[in-house]
């Protein structure tokens, strides 16, 4: 566990400095913001289109779907970033150097994976909790 923690923390720090995590966060936040703007635009044009203004339940449903959608797209971006990080580290010899140390290969892969997915999971959790609070 200590080795996994070490690899994760160093990789997160390294990813932060290369702005990978920032790019993921910006992408997810942008998707959420665009979805919300779209939702309010729909609400705004609904009277003009002489359609029925959605009730609170329908709005909540819409919000849930957009936020879950944003999280899913974020996850997709995360997976892409993970693949790119692995490829970059492989071509620069970072992975080879780690594999030549006494660390177990499984610990290296787990640590590297956590470094990319953990920030996304934390953000996803935060967005879902925020949505719950909004609904309440």
């Amino acid at each position: 566990m200590k080795d996994i923690g070490l690899i994760t923390s160093v990789s997160i720090r390294n990813n932060l400095r290369s702005n990978i995590i920032v790019a993921v966060l910006i992408a997810v936040v942008l998707i959420c913001a665009i979805s919300l703007v779209l939702a309010f635009c729909l609400l705004a044009i609904a009277p003009a289109m002489k359609t029925e203004i959605p009730d609170r339940h329908t709005l909540e449903m819409f919000l849930s779907v957009t936020i879950y959608g944003a999280c899913l797209i974020g996850l997709g971006i995360n997976m892409n970033v993970f693949a790119q990080t692995m490829m970059r580290e492989k071509s620069r010899g970072n992975i080879t150097a780690l594999l030549a140390t006494p660390l177990k290969a499984s610990h290296i892969w787990t640590g590297k994976s956590l470094a990319v997915f953990l920030p996304g999971l934390v953000l996803g959790e935060y967005i879902l909790r925020s949505q719950d609070r909004l609904s309440d």
């Binding site: 400095r17 071509s91 010899g93 970072n94 150097a97 140390t101």
Partner: peptide, 20 residues
């Protein structure tokens, strides 16, 4: 794996982290 504690290496490419 214990023997790896007794070996040091420098490979090409060097595998150093540029951002650190």
């Amino acid at each position: 794996s214990a023997i790896r504690m007794r070996i040091g290496f420098a490979l090409d490419p060097d595998g150093l982290y540029d951002n650190m």
